[in-house]
Design a protein around this nucleic acid. Sequence first.
DNA 1: ATGAAATAATGAGCATACTCATATTTTGCT
DNA 2: AGCAAAATATGAGTATGCTCATTATTTCAT
Lengths: 225, 225
Amino acid sequence: MKRPAPKASRRAQNPASDAGPRQKKKDQTRARILRVALDLFSSRGFYRTTTRQISRKAGIAEGTLFNYFATKEDLALYFFEQELEKLIQWFEREKPLRKAPLVEKLFAIVHRHLEQISPFEDFVGAVYLRALQPASKLHPISLDSQSLNLRYLRFIREVLAEAENEGEIPPVGDLGAWAFALFHVGIVSFWLHDASPGKERTLALLDRSLKVARTILRRGGDWNW
Amino acid sequence: MKRPAPKASRRAQNPASDAGPRQKKKDQTRARILRVALDLFSSRGFYRTTTRQISRKAGIAEGTLFNYFATKEDLALYFFEQELEKLIQWFEREKPLRKAPLVEKLFAIVHRHLEQISPFEDFVGAVYLRALQPASKLHPISLDSQSLNLRYLRFIREVLAEAENEGEIPPVGDLGAWAFALFHVGIVSFWLHDASPGKERTLALLDRSLKVARTILRRGGDWNW
DNA sequence: ATGAAATAATGAGCATACTCATATTTTGCT
DNA sequence: AGCAAAATATGAGTATGCTCATTATTTCAT
């Protein structure tokens, strides 16, 4: 159904120079498309942005767009990839957090994520939750090693593993990471609906949920996860 | 964006007879569309079924279809309404379950649900998980009182409340119901990906998860949910 | 430099969900 | 029955995501 977007098919004869002029131009075009698309998505919303508008504003033909991205949805996915990357990098830079209890870390991650995506609320609403659909590259339990979610799951796994190793929590393993991912999606979903000023209800929910998690996780002992 | 599907607009002058010949015909057409659509969805999948095919097989014009259902997705939603209704009715009929511990009830509900929808796996994969999207009538925290989810949430709430009243679990309230709904969606999502024979991995996950839930819920005490 | 081969860009065209002005049927009243 | 109004059905038309045969550009060996 989908044509794979062609990627970095550099010639075998020229492995030395990492970016020939052709590749460079392609990279520029790709970046331009991405920029324009995100612009339109966040100002007009995902559904009301047409691929024609995107290609027009990016100065390319309609067909060219699909040489770079297989589907309109794919285009949106790159946005989330970027955001995830930012999130992870932020976390690794945030030294004070490293010493905090696990639950604080998790709260901070979700909170930061919401802050990051909040300028794009409409757009997120339209696309993000496709994450749970089987076909989506965003799916949390997708086995596709290229997938965005694997990246997310590994990240969370590591955060959890650290807490496990220090005996802060019982071993929760992959299932724990998966559960948290699901929780995270749930919070985003709630956030999208939250009409309270400053999204305070979401923050309250987040707070309460993590209190519950703290209670649950505090007990040592084997749980048979 | 969506035109509301016209509904039961019987004449004020004729409130006595509950189903005039006209209404009856409409009901029949509606039912026929639903039957044909479900048929096609489950045999050819959601995306590969066109609205033209549906209207053709139902013996109506293409436009007529949209007099009855505002969108193709809407058409699919009716399926889930039916399934939910079946699920609830099944539960209320299942006397032995009423005395079982809460966790067993919850396991049974999810398990039964999976059994029910399993003939329609492809179709479910394409549509069901839109539940989490804000615009969807299926959304768990939709405030639309007509919504399917409210029905589901009320159902779960009641099951939980019963256990609360008997002191089996601490008070978990709406948040508890919401959490379970999210869990349920997560399981369905997992199930859709599960390629193991007889979906045994899903069953194992379900089992483990509910064991964890049992451990967590067993402790009395105030939790500050 | 030159020609051929590889790569990329193009836009007319397609499929399909959905709209809407018009035509048809039904209803209620006399 | 006969008429006007209301309800319903119709299908040509529209918008848009995406395809693909064709054209244009770049690369590389000679």
